[in-house]
Amino acid sequence: MHLSQPALSTQIDKLEQELGVLLFERSHQKTTLTDAGRIYLKEARDILDIGTRAVERARLAAEGKIGRLRIGFISTAAAYVIPPLIAAFRKDYPRVELDLRHHLTAEQLGLIRSGMLDVGFLRLPLLEPRGLHTILIHKEPFKLFLPASHRLATQPDLELCHLDGAEFVTYSKRNAPGYAAAQSLVLSDAGIRPAAIHEASDMYTLSLLVAAGVGIAIAPASLKNYRLPGVIIRDLPGLQPAEVAIVHREGIDHPAALAFIRSARSMIDFFS
């Protein structure tokens, strides 16, 4: 301890006076701990251990290696992006607690802005991107989904102009306003005047409406994964791909979220 015997004895005496109890039983043959001394020794060691753990956990938290990460996602991200990304992230950050939540695009935007979600996977474009940062993570082509009984189902080499006058099933403007506005602009620019437009609250409902013969839909190719009977899928040239992005608040300082975003950036080529 690098202390002389008298100096150590003086410190012990001062500690016993402060506590008001004897910590040692002293005799000419030996010095042993009293019952109070044994309890005090155990508690002191526990305190030192807690202090050591606190320092270690603070360092791990600053490095993004522990903590709780809240991630929102749409169904397309759940199918194509989330599984490999989470698997890769868990290898490097196994102690980060992940809270995965399925939310529609509009819901995620509100939750991210309010701080209830740390990052989200949602559809582009965003109508109001102010205060948010987007990282394009996944692209997929648009396809034309038709009821098997539709007049266009057997027509070869379909183009946008062939869709004029048809009834359409579209994704809800309320749930993904930027995505819905972009699709509406595509139809308008092509001079297409739908006979009617039916909105669906989610992609699965959209595919159900197509299967039921309500109308046709221009939708991301991943919609084919529902494998609904009575739905014909056709190519439709001239459309920009559907895009899914990671979105987070500008200036985010959550260490685990920043680590997750870095991991996602490193895998962008994997998803392209």
Rank of each mutant, 00 (worst) to 15 (best):
Y204L: 15
G191K: 13
A180E: 02
G215L: 05
A195W: 14
A196S: 14
L209C: 00
S172M: 04
P177F: 05
Y171F: 12
L209V: 00
T170L: 11
L160D: 00
T170N: 02
A195I: 14
A181T: 10
T205E: 09
L163C: 08
S188A: 15
Q183F: 07
Y171M: 02
A190T: 06
V169P: 03
Y179N: 02
L187S: 07
A182S: 13
Y171N: 00
L209R: 11
A196N: 14
L208M: 14
V169I: 14
A196G: 13
S207N: 14
K173Q: 08
L208V: 12
Y179E: 06
F168D: 01
F168W: 07
A181C: 08
G213C: 07
L209A: 06
Y204F: 15
V186S: 02
P177T: 09
L187C: 07
I197Y: 01
Y179V: 02
I197E: 06
I218C: 06
I216T: 12
I216Q: 05
C161N: 06
H198L: 12
L163R: 04
G165E: 06
I192S: 07
L187F: 06
A196E: 12
T170D: 00
I192D: 02
A181W: 01
S184G: 14
A200L: 10
I218T: 13
I192A: 03
A211C: 07
S207I: 05
G191I: 10
L208E: 14
A211G: 10
Y179G: 00
L187R: 13
H162L: 01
G165W: 06
P177R: 09
S188P: 05
L206D: 01
V186R: 11
E199Q: 11
V214R: 14
R193G: 00
A166T: 07
S207F: 02
A195V: 15
Y179K: 03
D189Q: 15
S184A: 15
Y171S: 00
A217D: 00
A181L: 14
A190W: 02
L187Y: 07
A182F: 09
H198P: 04
Y171L: 04
C161V: 11
I218F: 09
Y204C: 12
A217H: 04
G178Y: 13
G178C: 12
V169H: 04
S201A: 14
V210T: 08
V169M: 04
G165M: 09
C161G: 01
P177D: 05
A182C: 04
A217L: 02
I218W: 03
D202I: 04
V210Q: 05
A182H: 11
H162S: 06
T205Y: 02
S188V: 03
L187Q: 08
Y171T: 00
K173N: 06
L163D: 00
L187P: 03
R193W: 08
L208T: 11
S188Y: 10
A196K: 15
A181Q: 14
Y171V: 01
I218V: 15
G213H: 12
S188M: 10
P194W: 07
V186M: 10
G178H: 14
V210I: 09
S184T: 07
L208K: 15
N175F: 05
A190E: 04
D189C: 05
E199N: 02
V169C: 02
S201K: 13
S172A: 11
Y204S: 12
A166I: 00
T170V: 13
S188L: 12
A182K: 13
